[in-house]
C-alpha cells in the first residue's frame, strides 16, 4: 500500500514537472513541444536521479556514522566541490564540462582526505573521527574558496557561486545519460550493504558478532555514498536537506530496515527534488528560486508533522 503510494507519488511529481512551467504548454501539445522534450523532461529526470542519489547517500551515511544528523554535505563534500568549481573559474577553465568536472574532482579530493583522516585511529574507519574530519575538511575547503573569491574579480566568480547554489538549470539529455551510466554502481553497492547496515546500528562489535564484516562494509558504503554525492554536486550544485530529511521520513514510515529504506530514500529524494524544482521554476516565474530553499521549505514542515505523529505513537 505505502509502496504503491510512493510509486504513484513519483509518477505524479514527474508529471507535474513536465506539465508545469513558466511557459504554458497546452496538454495536447506536450509530446511535440521542444520545451517539454529538451528542457522539462530531462530536467525532471535529472531531479529524480539527483534527489534519489542524495536520499540514498544520506540513508547510507546516517547508518554508517550512527548519527541521525549525518548528511551527505556534512562530510566535507560540498566544501570540496565548491573549491573545485571556484578554482576552475579562477583558472579560466572553459567549456560546458569544466565546472561540473572540477566540482566532481574537488568532492572526490575532499572525500579522499576525509577518508584518510578517518583512518588515523587504525585500520578501521572510526565513525566519530570520520564525522569530525568531514566537518573540518569542509570548513578548510570553504576557507580557501572564500580566499580565492576575495582575491578575484567578483563578476567572474558570481557564476561559480550561483552555479554552486544553483539547482537543476543545467539539465540536458547528456547530463541525464551521464547520471544513468554512473549511478548504478554505487547504488548496487549500497543495496548490497543493506543488511550489514542494519546490524551496524547496534555498534561495531555486536554487528561483527552478527555476521557483518564491519571494516569492509564501512569502506564500501562511505565510498559509494560519496560517489553519489559528488555526482549530484557536479550536475546540480549543493542541494541541502534532501539527504538529511528524506531518509528520516523513510524511517518514520518504513522503519529502519535498509532493504526497504534505500529504495524508498531514492524515490523519496527524487519526489522531493522534482516537486521542489517545479515550485522553484514556477512561483516567481520568469525568475527561479534556488531549489535548495524550496527543498527546505517543503521538507522541514513535512518532517515536523511526521515527527510529531511518530513520537506521539511511541509514547
Amino acid at each position: 500500500m505505502k509502496n504503491a503510494g510512493l510509486v504513484a507519488l513519483s509518477v505524479i511529481a514527474l508529471a507535474l514537472a513536465v506539465i508545469l512551467g513558466p511557459t504554458s504548454v497546452p496538454l495536447g501539445d506536450l509530446i511535440h513541444s521542444p520545451i517539454v522534450r529538451d528542457l522539462r523532461v530531462p530536467r525532471a529526470l535529472l531531479g529524480l536521479l539527483v534527489g534519489g542519489a542524495l536520499g540514498v547517500s544520506g540513508a547510507g551515511l546516517q547508518a554508517l556514522v550512527r548519527n541521525p544528523l549525518a548528511d551527505p554535505f556534512l562530510m566535507g563534500l560540498s566544501g570540496g566541490a565548491g573549491l573545485g568549481a571556484v578554482g576552475a573559474i579562477a583558472l579560466h577553465l572553459s567549456g560546458p564540462w569544466a565546472l561540473p568536472l572540477a566540482a566532481f574532482l574537488g568532492a572526490l579530493a575532499a572525500m579522499a582526505l576525509v577518508y584518510r583522516l578517518g583512518l588515523v585511529a587504525g585500520a578501521t574507519l572510526d565513525p566519530r573521527i570520520l564525522l569530525l574530519a568531514g566537518v573540518v575538511v569542509g570548513s578548510f575547503a570553504a576557507a580557501i574558496s572564500t580566499a580565492i573569491v576575495s582575491l578575484s574579480e567578483a563578476e567572474q566568480l558570481r557564476n561559480a557561486m550561483l552555479w554552486l547554489w544553483g539547482g537543476l538549470s543545467g539539465a540536458s539529455w547528456t547530463t541525464v545519460l551521464v547520471m544513468l551510466i554512473y549511478l548504478p554502481v554505487p547504488l548496487v553497492i549500497l543495496v548490497a550493504a543493506a543488511r550489514p547496515l542494519d546490524l551496524m546500528a547496534l555498534g561495531d562489535e555486536p554487528a561483527s558478532y552478527l555476521g557483518a564484516d564491519v571494516a569492509r562494509v564501512r569502506r564500501r558504503v562511505y565510498l559509494a555514498a560519496s560517489m553519489l554525492t559528488a555526482a549530484a554536486v557536479a550536475v546540480s550544485g549543493v542541494i541541502g536537506f534532501v539527504g538529511l530529511i528524506v531518509p528520516h521520513i523513510g524511517r518514520l514510515i518504513w522503519g529502519h530496515r535498509h532493504r526497504a529504506l534505500i529504495p524508498v530514500s531514492f524515490l523519496g529524494g527524487g519526489i522531493l527534488l522534482m516537486l521542489s524544482d517545479t515550485l522553484a521554476r514556477t512561483v516567481v516565474a520568469p525568475r527561479e528560486l534556488p531549489v535548495g530553499i524550496v527543498t527546505a521549505l517543503i521538507g522541514v514542515p513535512a518532517f515536523a508533522v511526521l515527527l510529531r505523529r511518530w513520537v506521539g505513537a511511541r509514547a
Binding site: R66, A201, L202, G203, E205, P206, H256
Partner: peptide, 17 residues
C-alpha cells in the same frame, strides 16, 4: 555467526526498534 552468538556488554540504540 551461525555457529557462535555473543551477547555483548553494550550496544547502541541509534534508531528505535
Amino acid at each position: 555467526a551461525r555457529v557462535a552468538a555473543v551477547v555483548t556488554q553494550r550496544e547502541e540504540m541509534t534508531f528505535p526498534q
